[in-house]
Amino acid sequence: MDEVDRSILNSIQDGFPLTSRPFAELGARLGLSEDEVISRIQKLKDANIIRRIAPVIDVKKLGGASTLVAMSVPLDRVDEVAGIINAYSEVSHNYLRQDKYNIWFTVSASSKSRLDQILKEIEEKTGYPYINLPTVRVFKLGVKFEV
């Protein structure tokens, strides 16, 4: 990854041009040809540095509901429990953390009732209780990561 890659990464995390030839526009901003922008982004994607270029949606504004959930799971069962949780496509993040509550995951569902149903099912399938920590207020929501 060189300086040009960095400048591409810093310019495509938000404000990706919604135009017919977005890579040409990015190239014009960065002093690169359209082909070079595409091939560099392809390489960054092949290296799994870029996960995807896509719309990031606001679930609440689309009528859905989301929350952060923590569970307390014995260490020898975390893989199994993480597998049960990850099977739901509505689970977007899931981490093992060092605390009494050690499995932390976020769920974004199309409705509050679907969200409640998923949590109930996970509790039933795993046998572990959870704490539900919905957002009350957002102070900052990272849109960009300087590379």
Partner: peptide, 29 residues
């Protein structure tokens, strides 16, 4: 897409970066 962005239903349109791959390995809650 532009309308969904203006309405805030799309928060942003752009690349998602794998932090770990660019050396940002630690993530603390």
């Amino acid at each position: 897409l532009q309308r969904l962005l203006d309405e805030g239903k799309i928060r942003r349109f752009g690349a998602s970066i794998a932090h770990r791959k660019i050396g940002v390995i630690a993530n603390a809650m």
